[in-house]
Design a protein around this nucleic acid. Structure first.
Length: 830
RNA sequence: GCGAAAGUGGCGGAACUGGUAGACGCGCUAGACUUAGGAUCUAGUCCCGAAAGGGGUGGGGGUUCGAGUCCCCCCUUUCGCACCA
């Protein structure tokens, strides 16, 4: 009776041993530091399959780097503030803190069962006072640097959660948590972080992120949305007021035939002539009532309303009618645009609808456009016409010369415009980090002195039903305080911070998590940062990953960090969905629980299955029966291993004598080395472990072919032992418990993770090449047959007709000929 | 609409710089061992064909001795942006 593979026993044994020996502790004085980071988790119940996948991939890399001799920092923590805790509190009458800590317990237990190589001594929890006091410290740092400001403006409001939202959290006009409920626009005074100040540097920094996914870099680039052009001033015909517009095409200035204001533009009311006010007001009201989705629907027919007044064209002096239209965005540029219908499609549509003139001022070469009949706005290259002194100037040159001219005449200036908006960080909710600011009637807004941090979140709050104002306002012992400057009665800012503020710096805390004086020491930061490898989902491309870069740059400027970008390499793993391709969710009832999988198969089987199912960046459609193949593989590997090690022929110092091997054993030997190579390639490259696992399966199939170990010849037998030695080590990052067990059964004292990473023998990688003379009509034409991966016998069987060879070779005298048996001939000359 | 990526068996997916398409796994078929098996083992499994042979990587064209891979056109899917002036 042979011992069968019992993953539960093996895993319990090694997890206990790793804990006892503190195997995952971070090295104290690292010589070759490697910071491996996976995005931390929001604790909502237990971990899900997405976490399982993310943390598995990260653990594979961390363990590999350790075997490569790096000193690895591999920490974990919890993104513990956030709305779901409050919603749970409302539904289940449990305090958000209690709910959160309970979920952390549950999730941590599952993660620990996974045997992940985290240094749990560095665990952080963002809702704990030892963390959030430094989140407040960060706020004060930004405030001191003029990067945190309070302003009243029109902001996004989620009617379900009853709180404001950052721009990054509005998806298709709705709050990201409630895709069916459109966001509303409200005029409110809120805290913002001045990320726009860093727009240019965030853009430039992207060029250096060579190991970030291209798609993410591209998304950030469009999100920041840089446009270069000019700002042009127009005077109102009546009164003293003036009006600026932003344009990327100052060369088309002579083609302006109307001017349009966004309905929210502050000038609308004053610029409207009295007799038209009712109509304009009606239009503005209607525009405000429209949802964000309606407003921004580009396919909608454009409409607007005439104010009755005019602006003066700054170059021609002509009056230009001033309109109000809701296709103009209040939040971009100046909230006003000049209408150049001949050269802007939107303006053309508007002009046609209201019979406004269309003036062609750019003529394409070899064509004559007519404003009367133009159907499509012309936006291409050409020469300026009807443009006063600039007639005949090509577009590109015209843009520069007109801008220069505007500057000289003091009616305009060069202007760079970004699509990026400042980051709104206030939330009118309880479960978040309090904003460390105090409102005093006489001193205004006053920061809480640093030595008074943390501003504690009061635990006494019991009512979390959203009302549109922070519950902290109703907690007198929190809300009411004294002004730090004058000592008079004052009140604290009752809002809490966006949880994305927490995640903008959590990775910095890991380098020095127990520091009570500072968020982290500069020394520890210098040692470990930047993050060498960061893994998480791509849904954070224009949110977290942008904020996280922003914070890095701010802390760099403040002298806290030497680095300017937070992470060298970024990888996005694919989603895990159900077999039908649906996202797993409680409401759909299709959630697969990792913990349940571990109950049945232990950890290594589902872990290896996760790695085997698809390339790491691709989506996985999880199917229970897919586990079967991996389960069989591990059980067979174990069975063969146990039978081999029980065999007395295992001796010390038995080297594989390659020349003496039978072809079957040689093939197995070759495949073992290829599996090692394939795993190394995956780890160094694309993280596509599916092919690495497949290579090990091929190796095992080859090892099983000659029969059980006692049927192996003495010459072939060492191949088995060598294959197990290689497997134990190269498989260890993928299936850590099993790898460790095999390694120890091979007679090693130290952990497999302290063993060196195996190097595949080149001989096993080499392609077959055999020298065979090629003769045509009895005459030697060339010498070498080469065929990738083809055996000698096969090659000798290669059937090539004389005609075929003659046809290909012609009169050439090739250096060598590449033949794929029976099929293909390629001559290589020179 | 713009931009990007991708289309390969019943399914997940292999195929490095163009070189025997379908590795590996699931599933399926047959057999062995079994009182039994949703266990295990063995063999088979792209399509047509008894075989020889022929066809085959979304469709159509092209380059090449040779194309899943390179080029052009079209179709489909997914993702990102979506009135940003």
């Amino acid at each position: 009776m042979t011992e069968s593979y019992d993953p539960h026993a093996v895993e319990a044994k090694w997890q206990e041993e790793w804990r006892r020996s503190n195997a995952d502790a971070t090295p104290d004085s690292p010589e070759d530091p490697f910071y491996m980071l996976e995005m931390f988790a929001y604790p909502s119940g237990d971990i899900h399959m997405g976490h399982f996948r993310n943390y598995t991939i990260g653990d594979v890399v961390a363990r590999y780097q350790r075997m490569m001799g790096r000193d690895v920092l591999h920490p974990f923590g919890w993104d513990a503030f956030g709305l779901p805790a409050e919603n749970a509190a409302i539904q289940h009458d449990v305090h958000p803190a209690e709910w959160t800590y309970r979920n952390i317990e549950t999730s941590r237990r599952t993660l620990r069962r996974m045997g992940l190589s985290y240094d749990w001594d560095r665990e952080i929890v963002t809702c704990r006072e030892d963390f959030y006091r430094f989140t407040q410290w960060m706020f004060l740092l930004l405030y001191r640097r003029g990067l945190a400001y309070r302003e009243s403006s029109e902001v996004n409001w989620c009617p379900v959660d009853q709180t404001v939202l950052a721009n990054e959290h509005v998806v298709d006009g709705a709050c990201w948590r409630h895709p069916d409920t459109p966001v509303e626009r409200r005029e409110l005074e809120q805290w913002f972080f001045r990320i726009t100040e860093y727009a240019q540097r965030l853009l430039e920094g992207l060029d250096d992120l060579e190991e970030w996914p291209e798609s993410t870099v591209k998304q950030q680039r469009t999100w920041i949305g840089k446009s270069e052009g000019a700002e042009v001033d127009f005077e109102l015909q009546e009164g003293e007021e003036s009006l600026s517009v932003f344009t990327t095409r100052p060369d088309t200035l002579w083609g302006v035939t109307f001017m349009t204001l966004a309905p929210e533009h502050p000038l609308v009311e004053r610029a409207t002539v009295p007799e038209r006010r009712p109509e304009v007001r009606g239009y503005v009201e209607a525009a405000r009532a429209k949802s964000e989705i309606e407003r921004t629907d580009a396919s909608r027919e454009k409409d607007g309303v005439f104010t009755g007044s005019h602006v003066i064209h700054p170059l021609t002096g002509d009056p230009v009618p001033l309109w109000v239209a809701d296709y103009v965005l209040a939040t971009y540029g100046t909230g006003a645009v000049m209408g150049v219908p001949a050269h802007d499609q939107r303006d053309l549509e508007f002009a046609r609808r209201y019979d406004l003139p269309v003036r062609v001022v750019i003529q394409p070469r070899g064509e004559e456009l007519d404003g009367e009949t133009l159907e499509q706005a012309y936006t291409g290259d050409g020469l300026m016409v009807d443009s006063g002194p600039f007639d005949g100037t090509p577009v590109e040159e015209g843009i520069h010369r007109v801008t220069e001219f505007l500057r000289e005449e003091e009616i305009g200036r060069e202007k760079t415009q970004y699509r990026l908006r400042d980051w709104l960080i206030s939330r009118q909710r309880y479960w978040g980090c309090p904003i460390p600011m105090i409102h005093c009637d006489s001193c205004g807004i006053v920061p809480v002195p640093e030595e008074e941090l943390p501003v504690l979140l009061p635990e006494s709050v019991r009512d979390f039903v959203p009302t549109g104002r922070s519950p902290l306002e109703d907690v007198p012992e929190f809300f009411e305080t004294a002004c730090p400057e004058c000592g008079a009665d004052a009140h604290r800012d009752p809002d809490t911070m966006d949880t994305f503020v927490d995640s903008s710096w959590y990775h910095l805390r890991y380098v020095d998590p127990h520091n009570e004086e500072e968020p982290f020491s500069r020394q520890a930061a210098r040692t470990w940062l930047p993050v060498d490898f960061y893994i998480g989902g791509d849904e954070h491309a224009t949110g977290h990953l942008l904020y996280f870069r922003f914070f890095t740059k701010v802390l760099h400027d403040a002298g806290w960090l030497e680095i300017d970008e937070p992470a060298v390499r970024l990888f996005h793993h694919g989603m895990v969905k159900d077999a039908e391709g649906e996202i797993m969710s409680k409401s759909k009832g299709n959630v697969v629980s990792p913990a349940r999988l571990f109950d049945r198969d232990g950890v290594d089987v589902p872990r290896l299955a996760m790695l085997f199912f698809a390339p790491s960046a691709d989506e996985i459609l999880w199917e229970e029966k897919g586990l079967e193949g991996v389960r069989r593989f591990l059980h067979r590997l174990w069975a063969l291993f146990v039978a081999t090690m029980a065999d007395r022929r295992v001796e010390e110092d038995r080297e594989v004598e390659r020349k003496a091997l039978s072809s079957g054993a040689r093939e197995a030997w070759r495949l073992a080395h290829r599996a090692v190579q394939r795993t190394t390639d995956s780890l160094e490259g694309d993280l596509n472990f599916n092919t690495a696992v497949a290579a090990f399966m091929e190796m095992l199939n080859a090892l099983r072919k000659p029969g059980p170990p006692d049927e192996w010849s003495d010459e072939d037998f060492p191949v088995l032992v060598e294959a197990f030695d290689l497997s134990a080590r190269a498989l260890a990052p993928l299936a850590p418990h099993l790898g460790e067990e095999l390694w120890h059964r091979l007679g090693h004292e130290e952990s497999v993770f302290d063993a060196p990473w195996p190097v595949a023998e080149e001989e096993a990688m080499a392609q077959e090449s055999v020298e065979i003379p090629i003769q045509v009509d009895g005459k030697l034409r060339s010498r070498v047959y080469l065929a990738p991966d083809a055996g000698r016998e096969e090659m000798e069987r290669a059937a090539l007709s004389d005609e075929r060879i003659r046809e290909v070779l012609g009169d050439e005298e090739p250096e060598r000929v590449i033949v794929v048996p029976g099929r293909l001939v390629n001559l290589v000359t020179g």
